[in-house]
Write a protein that binds this DNA or RNA. Structure first.
Lengths: 111, 111
DNA sequence: GCAATATGCAACTGTTCGGTTGCATTCATT
DNA sequence: AATGAATGCAACCGAACAGTTGCATATTGC
């Protein structure tokens, strides 16, 4: 593996921000369940304009959650699960840590 | 367990939106690691105003991530891990489902 | 070549958001 | 009762955001 510089752990906040919109979350869910799709295909399932979907895709791309590849006249967007898993781990750590602390507190109070 | 009406599974988008801000994520992390705290105590660790912290706490509260209880002249804010775990599960499902689909696709292509 | 399809780009709009400042209120302590 | 500490409330501001419309560009298929 090549050594990578600038490798400090980036915050998960941008990922959460990207997922914090109903439309975008729906896009992510659709990509996850129905596989890589074109913009028009993604727009059909949505209630907003194609351009709105395009914008959301770029936001998701900026958060490292999706990437696209051109195929003919359409661009196929695909999910990228790494950041998703990072965010998931982050949440797991926080709630686990919290629950452990609460448990300790409860046992302490019960004495 | 009392039967709860209006129990349809609420979207995780509001939770993600609440976590999608650096300041709020820092507050959550601080509550998780240092336990329930007052607003002033949370403000000390932050770079913004007390009122800003207050606003963020209300946003987190709106997403069901924290709750507060008055003690004397200070209000103690506490983490609420349920929604956090919901969101975590949601992310786990999405990425797991996606990875499984990708695996199937790879095996299919390799034939 | 031409019509239809798929996307890209840019400007514009109303709303939400993060943050601040100023002032009022509540509570503890002496 | 009076001072200080902790919080609540409200108005305000600039920036970011979600979404739209209009038009340009590229690609497919007949």
């Amino acid at each position: 593996m090549p050594p990578r510089l600038h490798n400090r752990p980036r915050s998960s906040a941008p990922v959460f921000a990207a997922l914090g919109d109903e439309t975008r979350l729906a896009i992510v869910a659709q990509l996850s369940s129905r596989g890589p799709r074109s913009i028009t295909s993604l727009t059909e399932g949505s209630s907003v304009t194609r351009q709105a979907v395009t914008k959301h895709l770029h936001v998701l791309n900026g958060a490292g959650l999706v990437h696209c590849s051109r195929r003919g006249r359409e661009s196929i967007w695909e999910l990228d699960s790494h950041r998703l898993q990072d965010a998931q781990r982050y949440l797991a750590e926080i709630s686990a840590h919290w629950d452990a602390a609460i448990d300790r507190l409860r046992k302490f109070v019960e004495d």
